[in-house]
Every structure is written in C-alpha cells, then in structure tokens.
Design a protein around this nucleic acid. Structure first.
Lengths: 258, 258
DNA sequence: CACGATTTTTGATATATATCAAACACGCTG
DNA sequence: CAGCGTGTTTGATATATATCAAAAATCGTG
C-alpha cells in the first residue's frame, strides 16, 4: 500500500482535513518534524494486520491540472487518497451554478459522498499535477471488518468530513466576507503547517473565482478582501503568493461578528 | 431493537434524510403506503442476523421541547435514532453566534459528527416532545463487522449526511433568500411525504429565527419571504401552519438564479 | 520575447438583505 | 378571559456585497 494512503488510513495522528475555524485549531502534533509519508505510519496495527492491508494494493494514478478525478454521476468504486498535489470538489446545479465544496491536499481522502448512492454526487478536479492512490471500497469494507482499528479509522474520516462541512455551514451562514477569507487562510495555513510546510508563506492553487465559490462570494469581493488585508498589514499578497504577516490579527478577524 | 431504529439501520428503502435540493427529489417508494415502523423492515437480513441485531438493545428515552439530547463537548457514546418528534442540531461559535446545521425528524440518525473526536461537535435540541432510541456505537461497530449489510448501511447513512451537508453549502453559497426558503419548504414537504404525512399541509416545528439561522438569513427576511410566497399564491401561511398551494411554482423558484 | 488569453485588481453603481423599530398575533398562566 | 411574554409581521432605512466595466498584471505558447 502506498505510504500516503496508509498514512491516511491507519493512524490516529491524522494528516487529513481540520475544521475550518481557527477556534478549533490544534497545536502541531509531536511528529510534525517528520515528512508526510513518515508522519503517520501504523501505530496500532499488528504485523498480521499490516500484511492484510497489502490486499488493498491501491493503484497510483497521475493527474494534470484541470483533469477530472471523477465526475458527478460516475459509478462509485473507490475512495481516493491524495498522494501529492491538490484537488477541488464541486457540485453542479442544473442551471449552471456551481459550488466548490472543498479543496483537498496530500493525505486527504476524497469520494466519501458517493457511498450514499453508489454514484459520485460531486466532481473532483485537479488544481495542479497530482498523484492519487485509488482504494477500492469493497476491499476497504472487507478489510475493515477484519481490522477494527481500520474500521474505526474509516468512521472517523467520514465523521471528520461531516464536522468540516458543518464548519463551512457556519462560515457561509453567519460570517461576513472578510471573516470568511480569514477563516479560509487560517485553515490553509494550519494544513500547510501539518505538512511541514510554512504556515506563513504559501502559494494558492486556486483562482479568486474558485475561492469565491467556496466562500459564497463573488471573485471581486474576494480580491477586495485580499487587498484590504494587505492594506492594513495583516498579509502580503502577490496574486497567488500569500504571506501571513500578522497571524494573531488574522485570527482576531474571526471574532468580529456582525 | 425498536422498530424505528431498526428501520433506520437495516433497510435499503431509507426513511432518513434526503438531499435538500428539489432536483434530487425521488418519487415515493413503493412501500410508501405502510406506516413508518413497517416501512422498512429488514429486507436483506437473515434470521441469525436479525437475532444478532437484538444485541444492540437500544434504550428509549423521552424528551420535551427544548431539552438537550446532547451538548457540544459531551463524551460520545451513542448514535441516536429519532423514534418520534423532531430535533434541531446547531453549532456554537465562541462569540455567541450560532448556526443551525439541521432539522431532524422521525427515522433519522443523529450524532454522527461525534465519531470524529469522540466528543459531540454540536448540540441537539428537541423541537417538541420526542422519543429517541440510543444506539451504543461500540456495539454498532462490533455488529457491523459481523453483518456486512449493516456495515454498508452505516456507511451509507454517514455518506448521506455528507451529501446533505454539501447541498446546504450550495444553498448557502449560491442561492438568494427566496430560493433558500423554497428549497427548505420543498425538502420538508418531501420528508413529510416519505412519512406518509401530507406533502402540502404541515406544521413547522421551528421558529422563524431557527429557520433563518439554518438558511443563513435574518428572521425578518424569512418572514418576508413567507409573506411574499403567500402574496403570489404559492403557499398559504398562518404562522407555523403551511399549505403548499402551487408545488410546481415553488419548485420553479429554485431555478431563478442570480 | 511577444502575443493573446486569462486572471486579477480597482472603481462606480445597484441591489438584496440586514438593521432598527413598532405594531400585531398568539399561547400560556393565573 | 385578561394580561403578559414571546414570536411574527411589516415598514423605513442602512449597508454589505453584487454587478458592471475597464485597466492592469500574469500566464501560456508559439
């Protein structure tokens, strides 16, 4: 099994998504100094269980920018662990509207929405060149009947997605534009940090338009919010290159409710 | 095991939540003429599996209006199947803001968010006198290792919650006020219909304030949208009593995007 | 390296929804 | 059934964000 897929599935020190709100930020874990593949090697698996996991034998597949990993309506067969790169997921409404429901990066699992109906409910598009491990879901179910800690982990991954989604509902339902952008940047920062990348200097992989769709704003509003944060010295923006200058102040933006 | 909990867990003809958007509405199922308890008796379980399910031996508990089923931060032990009545779930932000994340009714499962961290991430409050079956999660996990169709069903319930949440993101991120209310009413209507109650005449269990929180609107905006729908003859509203007069036109509201 | 296409920024204006405020209706309790 | 508290409706106004538009910057590609 590829190390990232393993990492995503086997550990309790989960690299996967975190709640969107800064309030829920957790400190970096003890093993944050190792790299991603090493980050979360099996903690609670026996040798036999490890060997069983090999039965998954996930396929690795490469994607270029704007390739589809799956489309809405596709037959569900597998979950996908992102090995490297990043994706966006989005739902399409019949009238052409689309809503970005998430941005996923290395170590995160996507495709959970499809279990419900055996069909993908949204579509996943690569934001850059990416590598993905395909995890056949029937094998995963069989294995998780045999390996309780894998079963629990799968449940946690699904539950975490539910919690993440609810955080976004809070954001979309009750925050103003600049709060949303602050929450978004803080979430990214935290996820980069978990991956031993800089929490303060990073490159956005998505357009203003995509950020806007995710945050329920128009692209111009996103752009203005970036500009304003820069004006007041909270961040430096050069198009997609972000530097967080004053993390504390960025966090304090979240509490300025209406 | 109580029939509703059983129904929620064992069948493929799921009474549980449906996607929020009318676009995804499904026609009533063939067994819609029977009542809730009968609706979804075990289809694909053997006698032995049925007997095993008894091990769950869920507790039934009663709740009055505004009682808490669980609070944010409570230790996670069980999922809950709503036997009768209804609940709201909401997240609290530290600055006092709150966001209603869902309204749940008979046959639906709540508490899935808590699996992620072993702590409830939101709180569940009864909207009326209600009865709930408590399903100890460790027993559920054990059983679902032994009964593959139960395992698959649990996965589907979680996945369905993810899809539902994404539908709400679409609503909050891209719909205008009246579209949101239309989607909300259509969703309720569809869920009442599934329960063999009138799809066109029903009683709201929640306040304008709670609807507003759920839809990302202020209560006055919700009230005005109700009034407007009544003015143009789409619905009749008498405070919490709703009559849908023109279902087709209500559905067409959903496509009038900005 | 230059060109066209795309994305981003910025400005002026429009508009949907929030906010503030008051009247009204309803449900509960004594 | 009267009176009070809470929830709802409606109106007037404020404001955040959308919309429209144009310029500027960036990216990809020959």
């Amino acid at each position: 099994m590829c190390p990232v897929a393993l990492a995503s599935f086997v550990t309790t020190l989960q690299v996967s998504d975190v709640p969107l709100l800064a309030a829920n930020f957790q400190p970096k874990t003890a093993c944050s100094s190792c790299n991603l593949a090493e980050l979360c090697l099996p903690v609670d698996l026996t040798q036999t269980e490890m060997e069983k996991l090999d039965e998954l034998s996930p396929l690795k597949r490469n994607f270029s920018r704007s390739d589809y990993l799956y489309r809405s309506g596709d037959k569900f067969r597998s979950l996908f662990a992102i090995h490297s790169g990043s994706f966006k997921t989005q739902i399409l409404h019949e009238d052409g509207r689309e809503q970005v429901t998430g941005f996923q990066m290395a170590g995160e699992i996507i495709g959970l929405d499809a279990i419900s109906t055996d069909m993908h409910a949204c579509e996943a598009v690569a934001l850059e060149n990416s590598v993905v491990c395909e995890l056949p879901f029937n094998k995963l179910e069989t294995l998780s009947r045999e390996i309780p800690s894998l079963q629990r982990h799968l449940h946690k991954i699904m539950s975490r997605e539910i919690v993440r989604d609810q955080g976004i509902m809070l954001l979309l339902g009750s925050m103003r534009a600049e709060e949303r952008l602050a929450a978004f940047l803080l979430n990214l920062s935290q996820r980069f940090a978990t991956r031993n990348m800089s929490a303060t200097h990073f490159q956005l992989r998505m357009s203003r338009q995509e950020i806007g769709s995710y945050l329920g704003l128009k692209l111009e509003t996103v752009s203005r919010a970036f500009s304003h944060f820069q004006e007041v010295g909270i961040i430096n923006v050069k198009v997609r290159a972000i530097e967080i200058v004053d993390l504390a102040r960025l966090k304090s933006c979240l509490n300025s409710s209406r």
